[in-house]
Every structure is written in C-alpha cells, then in structure tokens.
C-alpha cells in the first residue's frame, strides 16, 4: 500500500535498491560459501546444472538491477 502512494521516481528508486540489495546478498552468499559452491559447480557431469542455474539467477536479479540503475541515473533509451 505504501508503494502505491509513492511518487514514481521514489518508487523506482526503492525497487532499484531492492534489486541492488538482492544482488549484494547473492554475491555475499557466493563469497561466504565459496568452497561449497565451487566444489558443486566443478564436480562435472550432471552437476553442470549448478553453474548454469547460478548464472541464470544472477543474470535475472543483477540484470534487472543494472537496467534500473541507469534508468535512475537518467540514462534512458531514446524514445
């Protein structure tokens, strides 16, 4: 409910921050569980699912964040 009452720019900023913080969380998890993640993703065979899934998840969250990031800075595509 709070979001709907927010001005467009503030709402956009909040959403960008949420995606940014989620990205940060993902990278923190990668850092903290470095050994386990590396072990699983380099085990070979069907374990290829691990690096591929990680890449998809990171690209979705971080990709959304970076898209909004430039938007918030006012760097937008020409209409």
């Amino acid at each position: 409910m709070a979001n709907s009452a927010m001005p467009g720019a503030a709402k956009q900023l909040v959403q960008t921050l949420v995606y940014g913080l989620t990205t940060l969380l993902l990278y923190s998890l990668l850092y903290v569980f470095e050994d386990s993640v590396l072990g699983l993703s380099s085990r070979g065979g069907w374990y290829f699912i691990f690096p591929v899934t990680i890449a998809f998840v990171f690209s979705f969250v971080h990709g959304t964040f970076t898209g909004r990031f430039w938007d918030v800075l006012g760097i937008k595509a020409r209409k």
Binding site: S41, S42, A55
Partner: peptide, 12 residues
Amino acid sequence: AWSGFVDIRLAM
C-alpha cells in the same frame, strides 16, 4: 561444466 572446468566465481 560437464568436465568441471567452470570457475563460477570468476564468471560471476
């Protein structure tokens, strides 16, 4: 990745 060569840290 099937051969286990991907360093996911570097890639990310």
